[in-house]
Design a protein around this nucleic acid. Structure first.
Lengths: 152, 152
DNA sequence: TTGTAATTAATGTATTAACATTTAATTTTG
DNA sequence: CAAAATTAAATGTTAATACATTAATTACAA
């Protein structure tokens, strides 16, 4: 369904406006789909992203600030997200030796296991998307990077 | 800045995953920019979108449900958004004659004026984006529509 | 017609987000 | 070195979001 049909707007002022609206709409759409996917696992998308960042460390510790820098939504509060994951016993958290202001965060085996489980579902998602073809996806990625660059 | 640099992730599992993350990130980025733009006018992006929908009616009334169908984020509560705009005296609200469950919402002159004012700033935004070129933007819009279609 | 289902909007509520502020630790500077 | 500035994380607070539920009205079916 085209963006025109999705939001029942027959025409747009220009192609720029349409692209802006289309990007916001498509972003929202993906977020909603993924949130629905993760809900049965008792985790939010942002919490999932933190887990994925921790997993990417391959056992190494990472500070709360570094987590923030790697997050999709920089505005959200990594401290509280880590707190939620800690409460679920998916991560551990210890004061950093070298800089006692910082906190070292690690993913626990339970966290890795949950991540793997969810990623199976995400892979199905990815499989559907791959129908678009690699060239198209590469082009989409390039256009998105250019888009952000244009309004920086 | 490429998405890799933005979130400090050196590589992605595959192009699909990268596209998903890039879309979410770019959507967030635009939303944050536009929210910052609207903040001085005392209005949120969602409220602005409702105003724009009402303006698109060119004087005709529209129900709360119809507003929801036209919104970018279907999950948000159009009823409360209209309430906020009503409190700011930017819209009026009367019970529909034909169907007394429904409520007719109109934009008031003050609402139109505010909209015009904000759109001046948005146009500058659009001007920057237009540097990408119309062909690129059209292609982006097509890819986004295809992307959503692939995971429907 | 009359009870049942469906629709429209509003409201209740728990969680989350967006900031600002605070606390503790470290770094810099005079 | 001591005071001031900076940094990291946590916490406080207000508003917004995501749903579920409710209340009123309309449509429909027996």
């Amino acid at each position: 369904m085209s963006i025109s049909d999705e939001i029942k707007q027959s025409s747009f002022k220009n192609e720029e406006t349409k692209a802006v609206i289309n990007l916001i709409f498509t972003g929202n759409y993906i977020v909603q789909r993924q949130q629905a996917l993760m809900k049965p696992f008792g985790i939010t998308m942002q919490q999932f992203n933190v887990l994925r960042i921790l997993q990417g460390q391959k056992g190494q510790a990472i500070s709360v600030l570094s987590i923030t820098e790697r997050m999709l939504d920089k505005m959200s509060n990594a401290s509280r997200l880590v707190d939620k994951l800690f409460a679920k016993k998916l991560v551990s958290r210890v004061q950093c030796e070298k800089d006692r202001r910082a906190v070292d965060v690690y993913i626990l085996p339970a966290g890795s296991a949950l991540l793997t489980q969810i990623e199976v579902h995400l892979d199905e998602f990815g499989k559907q998307i791959s129908q678009l073809g690699e060239e198209n996806l590469t082009q989409l990625n390039e256009l998105l990077d250019q888009f952000r660059a244009s309004i920086s």
